[in-house]
Nucleic acid binder design. Structure first.
Lengths: 159, 159
DNA sequence: CACATTTGATTGACGTGTCAATCATGCTCC
DNA sequence: GGAGCATGATTGACACGTCAATCAAATGTG
C-alpha cells in the first residue's frame, strides 16, 4: 500500500493507518479496563452499575421508566433488564409499577444505591482525571473532542 | 478550572473535561460495537476469535505457546483458556502438546481457522477504514497517534 | 533423591452481554 | 366489545470475562 491505486479506491487501511488503529483500540480498551478495576476496588460497583446509578441521579425524582433508562445509558432493553434484576437483588435500585402504563416499570434509586453512587463518584472522577485528563495537554483534549465528534457523526447515522 | 483552587490541587475533572471524557468513551464503545457487529455479520467470528487468529497468523509456523498467545492478544491466561476451548470446539484452532515442556500446550491454527481468518480479514479491514480512517483527516489521524501514545505511557506504567 | 516451590495452564462459579422468543398490557378498527 | 397488532418489558439459552482455586510438570535445595 505504499504506492497503490489512486488512493480513493483503496479498501484496506495502509500499514500506517493500521498501526494507528491498533494503537487506538488497544489503548482505549486498556484505559477502560484500568478504570473498571479502580471503580471496582474503590466502590464494589461495576461500570454498568455506575452508569445506571448516574442516569438515575440525573433523572427527575431519581426514577426513570425502563425504556428511558435504556436510552440514557445506551443499552438494549434486555441488557438493561438483566442488569436491573441483578442490581435489585443487591438493593441498589427498586422496580415500582408504573401507574400510567401497567406494562412498564419505573426504576427507582434506593437509599443504598444513592449512597453507593456518592461514595463511588469522587474516586471515579479522580481516576478519570488521573488516567485521562492529566495524560493530555489542553490542546490534545480539544483534539479529542473534535475527533470524537467526527467519529460519532460518521458512525452513528448508518445502521 | 473556571475559578477553583490553585488548579494543580483539583481532583475532579471540570465539566468541560467531563463532557469530553463522556463523549470519548461513548464514541469508542459505539465504534467497537459497530465493528464487532460487522465482523459477526460478515464472518461468524467474534472479535476475540479474530484477535486470536490474527496473532496466530503473525506467528512463526502459525503456532504459539498459550502464554505467548496470551501476551500477543493482551489477555489473562484464564480468559485465553476459556476462549481457546470454545474455538477448539469449532475447529478454528487445535491444541498440541508441547514437546519441550509438557506443562505447556501449543495453540495451532487449523485450516478452517486460516480460511475463516482470511475471509474475515478483508471485510474487517474495510470496516476499519470506513468507520475509523475515513472519518478523520490525515492531521487528525496523526493526532490520534500522539494522543494514544500519551495515554498509553500514562496508563501502562502503574498497576 | 525427596520435598517444597514455582510455573504453565485449566477449571468452576459467577457476573455480564446478545439474540430470539415470550408475555402482558395498551391500542385500533370493525 | 372483541380480534389483531403494537409496545414495554422479561426470560432463557448461550457466548464472553474475571477471579480464585486447582492441577500437573519443572525446578531448586537440603
Amino acid at each position: 500500500m505504499t504506492e497503490d491505486t489512486p488512493s480513493r479506491s483503496r479498501q484496506s487501511p495502509t500499514s500506517d493507518e493500521l498501526r494507528i488503529w491498533r494503537g487506538f483500540i488497544e489503548t482505549t480498551q486498556a484505559l477502560n479496563a484500568r478504570l473498571s478495576a479502580r471503580l471496582h476496588e474503590e466502590s464494589a460497583l461495576s461500570p454498568g452499575d455506575y452508569a445506571v446509578l448516574l442516569a438515575l441521579s440525573e433523572a427527575d425524582g431519581h426514577r426513570l421508566r425502563s425504556s428511558e433508562l435504556a436510552d440514557a445509558v445506551g443499552w438494549e432493553r434486555s441488557r438493561l433488564s438483566h442488569h436491573i434484576r441483578r442490581m435489585e437483588a443487591r438493593d441498589l435500585i427498586r422496580r415500582d409499577d408504573c401507574a400510567v402504563d401497567y406494562r412498564g416499570a419505573e426504576v427507582v434509586r434506593t437509599d443504598e444505591g444513592a449512597q453507593a453512587f456518592r461514595s463511588a463518584s469522587v474516586p471515579h472522577l479522580r481516576a478519570v482525571r488521573e488516567l485521562f485528563v492529566d495524560a493530555l495537554t489542553p490542546a490534545q483534549l480539544e483534539q479529542v473532542e473534535e475527533i470524537t465528534v467526527a467519529l460519532r457523526t460518521h458512525v452513528a447515522p448508518d445502521r
